[in-house]
């Protein structure tokens, strides 16, 4: 197996398209993943995240466009790609009627890991996943968090250079999620490139760079800090507590650039200068009780919601 790392980008995608019948799941996607980074793929359900990952891993053939993984073509060289990557999906894809060790040994055997190497890898996985005491337990008897870590271990039994994680934390409790991200940092720290899909904003914050994807299209690309900075350019973000909230939303929708509901508050974007005072007077004039208006730093969620609303507006105008 050639382990010469001669490629420039871990993943490179140009004009990638996937259609299922009349439905376009992935619409002319362009992005690159740098070697060694944690690259987040953020978007709502059905945005095309999994479809993209499945094309990169050789599970689906693209309808059009091209791409490389580890410098290898995803259409012509998908079998060679498979020896270089690890893939883990939300399903955790383990055999529940086999023990922890048997699962590791099975995947190791399928990846062609030699027996001597497999012993080392098994020890590493058991330690990494904290499963040493459970090595002889049936996998079906493990708690979800453990299964998740074992699945990651099995996906890495052959020491892949690039790891694709498709919603790896779906259906897992917050503590396990946090532990799992610690594992991702460890793995990335050892030089493995990680491409991970998620719809959790807190997870997106952990990524080196993010691609936001909506309706199969790329709507933003950059580090979390860059994306928030772009947002700040558009104006000042205010958090507003008012009563009744929905009446306030209607009133502000006419008066300001952007407004959206965030839990029990509203987030609105205003031009920095007289923004705060303008919001107060507008609401009070409309008979809404204003409890609090406060400038805040935008979160990724603000960025994401705003980008999605923009995309929806553009689509309406176009259609």
């Amino acid at each position: 197996m050639s382990n010469v790392l001669t490629y420039e980008h871990a993943v490179e995608v140009r004009e990638l398209v996937k259609r299922f019948g009349a439905f376009t799941a992935v619409d002319r996607l362009d992005f690159t993943v740098k070697r060694g980074e944690i690259f987040g793929f953020l978007g709502p359900n059905g945005a095309g995240k999994s479809t993209t990952i499945r094309m990169l891993c050789g599970l689906l053939l693209p309808t059009a466009g091209r791409g490389t993984v580890a410098g290898l073509d995803i259409i012509r060289e998908s079998e060679r790609i498979k020896t270089r990557i690890g893939y883990m999906s939300q399903k955790f894809s383990l055999y529940e009627d086999l023990t922890v060790e048997e699962n590791i040994a099975f995947y190791g055997g399928i990846y062609g890991v030699s027996d001597a190497r497999l012993a080392e890898r098994k020890a590493w996985i058991l330690e990494m996943a904290n499963l040493a005491d459970r090595r002889h337990s049936l996998t079906g008897e493990l708690a979800v968090g453990w299964k998740q870590r074992l699945a990651l271990g099995c996906a890495m039994v052959h020491e892949p250079e690039i790891l694709f994680l498709d919603e790896p934390t779906g259906g897992v409790d917050p503590i396990s999620r946090r532990n799992f991200w610690d594992l991702i940092f460890t793995v990335a720290g050892a030089g493995v490139t990680v491409m991970v899909t998620t719809h959790y904003m807190d997870e997106a914050e952990h990524c080196d760079r993010l691609a936001m994807i909506y309706g199969g299209k790329l709507i933003a690309l950059g580090s979390p800090a860059e994306l928030k900075a772009q947002y700040a350019d558009a104006g000042q973000l205010l958090e507003i507590e008012a009563d009744p909230l929905m009446r306030a939303l209607d009133v502000l929708a006419e008066a300001v650039h952007d407004v959206a509901v965030f839990g029990t508050t509203l987030h609105a974007v205003v031009h920095a200068a007289r923004g705060e005072a303008m919001v107060r007077t507008t609401l009070e004039r409309a008979g809404v009780a204003v409890r609090r208006v406060e400038p805040i730093a935008p979160s990724l969620e603000d960025v994401f919601v705003r980008l999605i609303e923009q995309a929806d507006r553009q689509r309406e105008e176009a259609g």
């Binding site: 891993c57 050789g58 599970l59 999906s89 894809s93 383990l94 055999y95 399928i110 990846y111």
Partner: peptide
Amino acid sequence: EIGTLEQLIVTPI
């Protein structure tokens, strides 16, 4: 059904 076939397909088998 349990998704392991997909997992096998991403291996070099």
